[in-house]
Amino acid sequence: MEDTITTQDIIKNGELVFEKTSCLTDNVLSYCPGCGHGVAHRITMEVIDEMGIQSETIGIAPVGCSVLAYDFMNIDMQGAAHGRAPAVATGIKRVYPEKYVFTYQGDGDLAAIGTAETIHACNRGENIVIIFINNGIYGMTGGQMAPTTLEGMQTSTSPFGRDVERMGHPLKMTELVATLPGTCFVTRQAVHTPSAVRKAKKAIRKAFENQKENKGLSFIEIVSNCNSGWKMTPVKSNQWMEEHMFPFYPLGDIKDV
């Protein structure tokens, strides 16, 4: 057909308004449509691209939904055991102090099984960046209760809602690590609106700049949705996140030294 529009017709010189960073691979994301991981991946990789540090950056992937982060991030990476990413990051950063090292972890990984590794890496002031995706649920294993699951929130292991008397309280990891002298920058962000994405990206940029200046550990929580685990449409899950997650996990900088 003569009127078929080709990619070349769309991309003309001087008209390019958006380009995928070369720090992301061409692999199709394994995340559910509507999930915040894809955007969080993209802005992290854009920062690495814009700072020109791709060849000096080592990422640590967790266990959880983002276990395959290294399929999408076009940088050298190490896959850690569940919760151990901050220890793995410590190990590589200490022998390559001039390189950039970051971990990318979910709430089960970072705030349950990896609590000790997280707190001690923060307390030692390891000169790394921790990106913490908090969606209040274990996504990969099918929607079980996480340490960050809100009171009353239904999951497959809290089917009648989280009863804090029996199941404990949701853990505010970010407020906790902000009390430790080894952290230099602790912030809570989101990626559900364009303005939130811009702010989150700015925070990630600042975290990597901190690492460049050897300022200590930068900790960025990104409160995200899990539309599959929460059993909602993507749009509804973002609304629910604003109404329920943000009041308990308020956005903004907690510490900036």
Binding site: T90, I92, E117
Partner: peptide
């Protein structure tokens, strides 16, 4: 040489994993 006292044996071996991933003698 780096010598670091970790918070546990679990952390120690994962720090070894990290450094060994970089081709270092850990």
């Amino acid at each position: 040489m780096v010598v670091l006292q970790a918070e546990s044996e679990v952390a120690s071996i994962n720090m070894v994993y990290g450094a060994a991933s970089g081709g270092k003698l850990a």
